[in-house]
């Protein structure tokens, strides 16, 4: 908590994990993992199934507590901070398995997220359906993510790809500086994936992004840096070209010369 780092050092590091450990019974999901994400970059984390990618997202977002290690966000130790407080600090996540409010309309989904951003919700009388301070930003954001003409549809009735977009819109409405995206392309067809890649590219620079992804095309198209995770351990970190040519990575993960194997795994 008192771990002070000189400001000039932390200035360009948005998120830093040091020696994170997490075990579930006998299974070590995260093994002495260290990682740093520079402000403004898209940092991808790849790894085969069971590499501990989602556990990492849960640790970073505060849904899980690490057994050991620390997490710094914008130079501040957030290891012990619960998830809601991390969101307030600007760290927002999306889910691999679509996590939206299915009974709410698309607009209500994002309105609620805007509401959460505005502070406490101990307001008992005024109807949200007439609250312009919620509706206007929500509409504006939905327009930006390409769901502008879907606002009044129940979220559960959206097409799958649209639900994925809504998922990210909900995260964006909390006005984060940092996005933790847990497999945003999961379960998408090639066309939907391509649209999502364009969408994420448009976010680049405005947000620092940690992208967990199975889809190798997406990763190599978007990432500034890539970290490769195998059995909870980081086996390599570097620029996309270095990762592509790293012999350890090829052996442990990419499995020879054909990276398409991995993207197929992602659909499972």
């Amino acid at each position: 908590m008192t771990d002070v780092i000189a400001p000039n050092v932390t200035k360009d590091i948005a998120l830093k994990a040091n020696g994170l450990k997490k075990a579930f019974g006998g299974l070590i999901a995260t093994d002495n993992l260290s990682l740093s994400v520079a402000t403004g970059e898209i940092h991808a984390v790849i790894g085969p199934n069971g590499a501990g990618k989602t556990t990492l997202v849960n640790l970073l977002s505060g849904m899980l507590r690490p057994d050991a290690g620390s997490i710094q966000f914008n130079g501040r130790d957030v290891t012990r901070l619960p998830a809601p407080a991390r969101v307030k600090a600007g760290l927002s996540r999306s889910y691999q398995i679509t996590s939206i409010f299915r009974d709410f309309t698309v607009l209500e989904n994002v309105m609620f997220s805007v509401q959460a951003r505005q502070g406490h919700s101990f307001r008992f009388w005024k109807p949200v359906s007439r609250d312009a301070s919620l509706i206007d930003p929500a509409r504006e954001l939905l327009g930006r993510v390409g769901l502008g003409d879907r606002v009044d549809i129940r979220a559960g009735e959206l097409a799958y790809g649209e639900q994925r977009q809504l998922e990210i819109a909900i995260s964006l409405a909390t006005q984060p500086s940092f996005l933790l995206l847990d497999e945003p392309m999961a379960g998408m067809g090639p066309e939907e994936s391509q649209r999502m890649i364009e969408f994420l590219r448009a976010l680049k620079g405005a947000y620092t992004i940690l992208l967990i992804e199975h889809d190798m095309d997406a990763v190599f198209a978007l990432a500034d840096r890539i970290t490769v995770l195998v059995y909870g351990k980081v086996i390599a970190t570097g620029a996309p070209d270095d990762i592509r040519n790293d012999p350890a990575v090829r052996e442990a993960y990419l499995g020879g010369d054909d990276s398409d194997d991995c993207s197929e795994e992602g659909a499972a």
């Binding site: 969101v87 939206i100 997220s113 307001r123 949200v128 909390t174």
Partner: peptide, 26 residues
């Protein structure tokens, strides 16, 4: 009045998807 207020929306959202409510900071 309660159900349609910000408070009620929070309650309904938590019923619908508690983890999601937490992960947007509530």
């Amino acid at each position: 009045k309660l159900v349609n207020s910000r408070f009620g929306t929070t309650i309904r959202a938590a019923k619908s998807n508690d983890t999601r409510v937490q992960s947007i900071g509530v």
